[in-house]
Amino acid sequence: MGTTTKAIVSMAAVSVMAWGGTSAKAQEPFKTRLSVGFAFTPEWQVDQSRGEDKSFYPTYGVFLEAQFTRRSGLQFGIYDRMSDMTGWIPGPPPGAPNVIHAVSLRLGYKFYWAKGIDLAAGMLYDAGVGKYAPSDAYGPYFSISKDIRLYKELFAELEAHANPFFNPNHWGSGSAYRGIYVGVGLKVKYRF
């Protein structure tokens, strides 16, 4: 074989080995990643039934994320949410608070997009807490977030979210839709 032929064969062999190595690396199985964390997500409650009244409340809680593939995962959270209930309770007794707490349970799908930007959508259920709490509420939620690595597997996540909410006791009466929560927040999570 001539020198040129040997060079071509050598380059082809190197290319096949490099391509084979890359292919094997691309086919490595993805390992499920779990994350737990704390969230502080202040939000505004915009209640359509009272003419776009906006009330601001802190919301905080704990959450768990399970990333099953490079792009897909689930998230579950338990939050303490405050709501302005003015006008929700007909003829409230004296001493009834206008602001009540709810335990907010959230379950959703998370899409891990490019460059640490994630999209999420799911459902939440708010269970009123206290003697004067109105009926529970529910609705879909949507969020966009960005992960920022703080140290090794410790991350901060900046989030913007929206959540229309409904009162199931008024379904069919035209007043089931109660408004929307919108907010921004900060989550701190540790990835295992």
Rank of each mutant, 00 (worst) to 15 (best):
28 E>D: 08
167 N>I: 04
149 R>A: 09
148 I>Q: 08
159 E>A: 12
153 E>G: 07
16 V>K: 00
104 S>P: 00
150 L>R: 07
22 T>W: 15
32 T>K: 04
43 E>H: 13
19 W>P: 00
72 S>N: 07
113 W>S: 11
12 A>T: 12
29 P>W: 03
105 L>Q: 02
178 R>S: 01
1 M>F: 08
144 I>G: 01
173 S>M: 11
3 T>Y: 03
19 W>E: 07
71 R>T: 12
12 A>H: 11
141 Y>Q: 05
162 A>V: 14
110 K>E: 14
171 W>K: 04
57 Y>K: 07
23 S>M: 05
112 Y>C: 01
126 D>C: 10
54 K>E: 03
77 G>Q: 06
56 F>C: 07
141 Y>T: 05
46 V>I: 13
188 V>Q: 10
27 Q>W: 15
79 Y>M: 06
17 M>R: 11
121 A>D: 11
123 M>D: 08
62 V>C: 06
174 G>Y: 01
148 I>S: 12
47 D>Y: 00
98 N>K: 09
14 V>F: 13
120 A>W: 10
138 Y>H: 12
151 Y>R: 15
156 A>L: 02
168 P>Q: 03
135 S>N: 09
30 F>V: 08
23 S>F: 08
166 F>D: 10
85 M>H: 08
44 W>M: 06
129 V>G: 00
168 P>M: 07
133 A>L: 02
80 D>M: 13
1 M>H: 06
54 K>P: 00
124 L>Y: 13
92 P>N: 04
147 D>C: 10
126 D>S: 03
153 E>V: 08
